[in-house]
Simulated scan of single mutants.
Amino acid sequence: MKFLHTGDWHLGKKLGDFDLRQEQWDAFLKLVAIAKEEKVDAIVIAGDLYDSPRPNEDSVALLNRMLVQLNLEEKYPLLMINGNHDSAVRLNTGNQWYRLNHFYLNTRLEDAFDPVEIGDCQFFLVPYFKLAQAKIILIKIIKI
């Protein structure tokens, strides 16, 4: 299996007053070109999609456009997690229908133990988490 790993897109980031949206779109188009050239079987997006847990509308629209192109138009399976800059709740919206299109998004640590299987590979999607979340899950597993 061949997959492309990416992350830290930080959509919505500005350098002073300079908006990076066009540069981010250009980088995205290069990512698509690499995926096609390398004939990848899936794309892994490892968090920090947004630069803020409360992204502006333009950033949300840009991410949606990118994900639609990768998943629905180009037909790449997507394996995605949230990062510390992302709102897990906001990213998880729509998760129920994502899997119908081979878009696997995990924003909950307790779901990281269930692998996503693509071909003969298993992916464990471990999102950003805080230590307290891990302690709660370990207590449930160990049943202390």
Rank of each mutant, 00 (worst) to 15 (best):
M1I: 11
L4A: 06
L4Y: 06
G7F: 03
W9Y: 07
H10D: 06
G12C: 05
K13N: 09
K13F: 12
L15C: 09
G16H: 10
G16Q: 10
D19M: 04
L20A: 10
R21V: 09
E23G: 11
D26F: 14
F28L: 08
K30L: 12
V32P: 04
V32E: 04
V32H: 03
A35D: 07
E37A: 13
K39R: 15
V40A: 07
V40K: 05
A42D: 08
I43C: 05
I45P: 01
A46S: 12
A46M: 04
G47V: 00
L49P: 00
L49K: 00
L49V: 08
R54F: 07
P55N: 02
D58R: 09
D58G: 09
S59D: 06
R65I: 01
R65N: 12
M66F: 12
L67G: 03
V68Y: 09
V68D: 06
V68R: 07
Q69P: 02
N71F: 13
L72G: 03
E73V: 15
P77H: 11
P77G: 11
L78Q: 10
L78E: 09
L78C: 13
L78N: 11
L79H: 04
M80G: 03
I81K: 00
N82E: 05
G83P: 03
D86P: 00
D86C: 01
V89F: 14
R90S: 10
L91H: 04
N95T: 14
Q96R: 12
Q96H: 13
W97S: 10
R99K: 14
L100T: 07
N101Q: 14
N101V: 11
F103D: 02
T107F: 08
T107V: 14
A112C: 13
D114T: 15
D114L: 15
E117Q: 13
I118M: 06
G119V: 07
C121N: 12
L125E: 01
Y128D: 10
Y128W: 15
K130D: 09
A134F: 15
K135T: 09
L138N: 11
I142D: 05
